[in-house]
Amino acid sequence: MSDREGHTGGPPGDDDLSLPKATVAKMIAELLPNDIACAKETRDLVIECCVEFIHLISSEANEICEKESKKTIAPEHIITALKGLGFDSFTEEVQDVLKDHKQQQKEREKKVSKFEQSGLTEEELQRKQEELFAASRAKFQSAQQ
């Protein structure tokens, strides 16, 4: 048994689930007018509501996933869950975020493939980088004189 009452070391219970308090506090502060403060208890309640919302959506998405005999919850399952639970107004923004995420993934893959397409080993690229640094230092030093 751990130092927390009733926790046996198995999967985390609902009491163990949370969101970063500083991040949530920052988001709340950004959304509120400057002359309005948010009490700690209110921030904690917002966190509890967010965790419950995430739990609700993920449970619904898991059921959809199981009905489709899938083993991994896909973004489409989340969107279907949102619609099924009456959160249709969220789906457009979720789809926009998903689209941005996929674009960022493609850009990362392009960077990796540029390395692969260079045809150079990591050591050769390291040597070229050191040569560029040396040339830059020499140019900087000559400008200083």
Rank of each mutant, 00 (worst) to 15 (best):
I47K: 07
H77I: 01
L98A: 07
L132G: 04
E93W: 14
K26I: 04
I64S: 08
L45D: 03
K71R: 07
N34W: 01
G86F: 13
S89M: 13
C38A: 10
L120N: 01
G10V: 06
K67H: 15
S18R: 11
K128G: 13
T91N: 03
E116L: 06
E122Y: 14
Q144C: 03
D14E: 02
L56D: 11
R137P: 06
A25M: 04
Q144D: 00
Q145F: 00
E124A: 02
P75R: 12
E109P: 00
K139A: 10
G6F: 05
D88E: 11
V46D: 07
R127P: 03
E122G: 08
I57F: 02
D14H: 06
E131K: 01
V112C: 12
H7C: 10
D16K: 07
E130T: 09
H7R: 10
S113K: 13
Q126V: 12
S136N: 01
K71W: 07
V51P: 04
V112P: 06
G6E: 09
V112I: 15
I57L: 08
K71P: 02
G6W: 11
E123D: 14
A81M: 05
S113I: 08
L32C: 00
A61D: 10
D16P: 01
I36G: 00
Q129A: 11
Q126F: 14
F140E: 06
E116K: 09
A39E: 02
Q145N: 00
K70S: 05
E41W: 01
E76D: 15
T91R: 02
S2Y: 04
H77A: 00
F115C: 07
E76W: 14
A22Y: 03
S118D: 02
D16E: 06
D100L: 15
D96N: 15
Q126K: 14
K114G: 01
K67D: 15
F53I: 01
K106N: 11
E93D: 15
I79D: 13
C38H: 04
A37L: 08
G10I: 08
V97S: 14
E63V: 09
L56I: 05
S69W: 07
S142N: 02
G10F: 01
D14L: 11
F115R: 04
M1N: 09
K21F: 09
T42M: 03
T8D: 07
E92G: 14
A61K: 07
G9T: 05
G86V: 13
T8M: 09
F90H: 15
Q117K: 12
A39H: 05
D35E: 02
K70E: 13
K67Q: 15
Q117M: 11
K114A: 04
E93Q: 15
P20H: 01
S69Y: 12
P11F: 03
G84V: 11
K21C: 05
D100P: 10
R108T: 12
